[in-house]
């Protein structure tokens, strides 16, 4: 079970005065159960990239294979693919439309062809997973707070039980507490159900603490691809393209440059703390 992108390129508005090359010869392999963060500046092609993965956008050239099958094949069931590769868009709460939260979450499973009973069960499970407060199950989605709306919207995708879950900027517009809760939730889902998660973000801090692999997009192609500590080692280059490494990276590099024998590759606050304690605690 894997997703393979083979020389994928995509150009917006072909043939008009406004051609934009959004993806430029992207080759990627995404294995089952990975937790990936895709980072890039606005316009680097990260959102375009992930929309290819469930067939919402068709590549101008190149192919994508899901579990070994070419998703651009004429008889490939792309509707089925979309239920396998779930996608939570930016500001997903803007897509809520039903009269109650519960009905809205049921929309996806119903489209999958499940009967009402099964759909209800799926919706219930999904809402439990995102820790949506039970007393609001029958509330109108338009009356909820921002964080709750987002949970409801994410539940709407999870209810389809995708094998791969893509989240495009799931924390945009949330306060720090809401952000940590959503990201924690995603981590928990990954650890418990073993699904592949692809997290699109422009915030290094968000991603560094949660993901196992980072893909940095720049001008429509991956610039770096690797474990967070490997990627952040290039923090100078990251800065050049308008991204910043997590603040601890700077701190650790500064300490290292001052002659303290810390490991400059610590990426999370916890790791940095351990390192600093190790070096300074000995004194």
């Amino acid at each position: 079970m894997s997703l393979i992108l083979d020389h994928v390129s995509y150009t917006y508005s072909v043939g008009s005065g406004y051609e934009v090359k959004a993806l430029n010869d992207v080759n990627l392999k995404i294995e089952d159960g990975e937790f990936i963060g895709i980072i890039g500046h606005t316009g680097s092609g990260k959102s375009t990239l992930v929309q290819h993965l469930n067939g919402l956008i068709q590549a101008t050239s190149g192919t994508i294979y899901y579990n070994g099958a070419d998703i651009y094949d004429k008889d490939y069931d792309r509707k089925e693919l979309r239920t396998q590769v779930g996608m939570v868009f930016q500001y997903p709460e803007h897509q809520l439309f039903e009269t109650t939260v519960f009905e809205d979450v049921k929309y996806g499973p119903k489209n999958q062809g499940l009967d009402d009973k099964q759909a209800t069960l799926r919706a219930f499970e999904a809402l439990q997973k995102v820790k949506f407060p039970e007393e609001n199950y029958d509330a109108s989605p338009f009356e909820l707070s921002g964080g709750q709306k987002r949970r409801a919207a994410i539940a709407g995708v999870i209810a389809m039980k995708p094998a791969v879950l893509i989240l495009d900027e799931p924390t945009a517009g949330l306060d720090p507490k809401g952000r940590d809760e959503i990201l924690g939730l995603i981590r928990e889902m990954h650890d418990k159900s073993g699904i592949t998660i692809i997290l699109v973000s422009h915030s290094m801090e968000d991603v560094a603490n949660y993901v196992d692999r980072i893909i940095v997009m720049e001008k429509g192609a991956p610039l770096f691809d690797g474990a967070p500590r490997e990627v952040f080692a290039n923090y100078k280059k990251l800065e050049e393209i308008g991204l910043a490494a997590p603040q601890v990276t700077y701190l650790m590099h500064d300490l290292y440059d001052q002659g303290y024998p810390v490991d400059p590759q610590a990426t999370t606050v916890e790791e940095a703390k351990q390192e600093i304690l190790r070096v300074f605690g000995n004194r």
Binding site: Q51, N54, L56, K79, R82, T83, G86, M87, F89, P92, H94, Q95, L96, F97, Y107, G108, K110, N111, Q112, G156, V157, M160
Partner: peptide
Amino acid sequence: IMKAQMARGADFEKKGLVNKAKAMVPLLVP
């Protein structure tokens, strides 16, 4: 929104007027 609903299995190319109108609700309300 169309893409978001398609990601949730919506089908905007259904046949028949009633089905078509029904398929529009998840698009028009948001």
